[in-house]
Design a protein around this nucleic acid. Sequence first.
DNA 1: CAAGTGCCTTTATC
DNA 2: AGATAAAGGCACT
Length: 289
Amino acid sequence: MRVSLNASCPFNLDATLCCGQVFRWDRHDGWWYGVTGESVLKIRQIGDVLEFDNANTDFVKSYFGLKESLPEILSQISKDEHIKNAVDAFNGLRIIHQDPWECLISYICATYKNISAIRKMLFNISVKFGEKIRYEKYDFYTFPTSERLAKANIVELEDCGLGYRAKHLLATAKMVYNSKFDFEHLKQLSYEKAKEKLLNFSGVGLKVADCALLFSLEKFEAFPVDVWVKRAILKHYSSHFTKEFAEKISGKSLTKPEYEQLSFFGRSYFGKYAGYAQEYLYHYERMNH
DNA sequence: CAAGTGCCTTTATC
DNA sequence: AGATAAAGGCACT
């Protein structure tokens, strides 16, 4: 399948898959392979042409956020020179519409880990608890269902390299499975209400909730603040805070009120697409630190 | 090479 | 309410 992207629909597949929002995509021979739902999606971008196999066009457009008007979003968040530089560097980076269950579990695993470690944990979980799919010459695994993870035992999960995250993952899987939790319903709630619901899960604090809201529940005002975003804010937006506050939060992890303050700054300064600004700042900071 | 640091933080306990 | 310590393990220096 081929789709031509016109000038009003900028897209950068590599940046979108490399910027650390998703963890289960791999590149082989110039093509990206990832499991979405029950099947493997194979995709590459040559110039303004998107080529893919094993998926329909509507799904691809919706998964990669191609239905949002990126030029409109980028013009809304381009409030200053620094964000404009980040946007220019990675123009076409889009927020992926991930599966909410997989996204929540991924970011529970992500606490206090780096991206390569997160990828390993999620790979291990998928191999052990997911279904194998053979596609071309590679093996892939579906992301395990809440039922499968709810029925796992804690040692099996720890063996996936999860450490203390194993108990949070298990507790959340049990809550989701036993209550038949409806993630789709969260999309209809306000950012605040949906966040409140997510915070009830074990292993889900402000940062993890913001990631799930932004990357899978279409709450584009969510502004997750991790160490990289904190650094970017201190470097380029410190004038929005007192000198004492900036000094206090540098070089240590954030307390709850400190997190709230930074995240609130992001939402009010960048507006309703603050999450896009966050992702450009995050990626730009990581690539240029 | 050993040891230290950092990692897309949350929770339990004061 | 708000601060503090503890919680895998691995990659990188």
